[in-house]
Design a protein around this nucleic acid. Structure first.
Lengths: 197, 197
DNA sequence: GTTGCGATGTATCGGCACGATACATCGGGC
DNA sequence: GCCCGATGTATCGTGCCGATACATCGCAAC
């Protein structure tokens, strides 16, 4: 999952690790807190040995003429390779089971702008299916096993069920939008075009 | 986190691993899918060497007189010890940062019936604080960095923001209920008591 | 009646991600 | 002059996951 996210961000522009982490935090802020360095740097190394990214060096205007001033470590800027772009598309389009869990779906969705409509529909429907299953499970528990659980546990299930139902509705809207070929999303689209003078 | 969940379930009754996994799935169905055996069995071992649980053997009515019929492996039933019960209370009441993330809070909440009101309030408020921070982060991104993100990413943030706002409202309700000393929760409590004849 | 399949049941292995920690530089406020 | 918070790279131990292996049981189809 990290592979996809990192390749996606480096697809937009080269970056060093620290910056990558910050961008990841804003781009995926709705999904996960912030990626740990204990995940980031090993992943970068993995992507590098696989040939999907390369070190670009820090040779911007005004560097390099003072190379070992104080044995400066220097930021390591990574950029995506051609193979990396292919890998990115592959990861983005492929649909394993982990594509539909909370994190996996979130990451895929965040890069929907780089996919085709068919893939978007496939992923949205897969996610819907998974959330519906979860919803049915919660409904069953609330229906049949309700008397065997305490009030707090039940309240937790109710809240979870509510979240599932909301997400399904949200997904339905997105799917309808995709099918009608409309723009990504317009939250309650305005009755008439306000950009027109 | 698994430690708390397992000790909590074994606190209710002794169980073997498979059953534990199923109960966990229904009790925490709103929080997480189902615990992996690759987590469950090592955790059970860990709890056992720590002295918090013990093997209770499978000596129910009608076993043991046919011990090695076909070299039967036999189910391993675990039960909680007195130290385990202490540990459970300790884990349940202690509030580290991981107590307030999605999973951690969910597990704690699922066992709220075994806590005192002060602890419940502390955890509910800690969780609220954390969700509020997340909410503010999303509001900032949607406000300031909106034009630098594509429509799908923005929609993801909107959906995340909505979920945060809902959860904060939910927590507010729960906190108000706790403070008023009322029963755990009553989703729009009925106007008059229907259990009375 | 046997065969085969799904549920029950215990267990390990490789790999990913996390939190804690260490270390170094830089700019600015006190 | 000094410290502190932001920037920046990196490793280590540990928890948890998915895949996999293996064994038993009841029962339904043939």
């Amino acid at each position: 999952m990290l592979d996809l996210a990192i390749l996606g961000l480096l697809h937009e522009s080269p970056m060093h690790g620290y910056e990558l982490r910050k961008q990841l935090a804003t781009k995926l802020g709705a999904i996960r807190a912030a990626i740990s360095y204990g995940s980031l740097y090993p992943t970068l190394r993995r992507l590098q040995v696989a040939g999907w990214i390369t070190e670009a060096g820090e040779t911007a205007a005004g560097a390099e003429q003072i190379p070992p001033l104080t044995s400066r470590r220097g930021r390591v800027v990574y950029k995506i390779t051609a193979e990396g772009k292919e890998r990115f598309q592959e990861l983005l389009a492929q649909a394993g089971p982990e594509t539909y869990d909370d994190t996996g779906f979130g990451v895929h969705f965040a890069f929907f702008a780089r996919t085709d409509q068919a893939t978007r529909l496939r992923i949205l429907e897969g996610r819907r299916r998974k959330v519906e299953e979860r919803r049915e499970g919660l409904r069953n528990v609330l229906g049949r096993a309700a008397e065997r659980l305490d009030a707090y546990t039940l309240e937790l299930q109710r809240h979870g069920l509510d979240a599932c139902e909301r997400e399904v509705r949200w997904l339905e809207e997105l799917i309808a939008n995709e099918r009608s070929g409309r723009a990504p999303q317009a939250p309650t689209p305005p009755p008439d075009t306000p950009e027109r003078p």
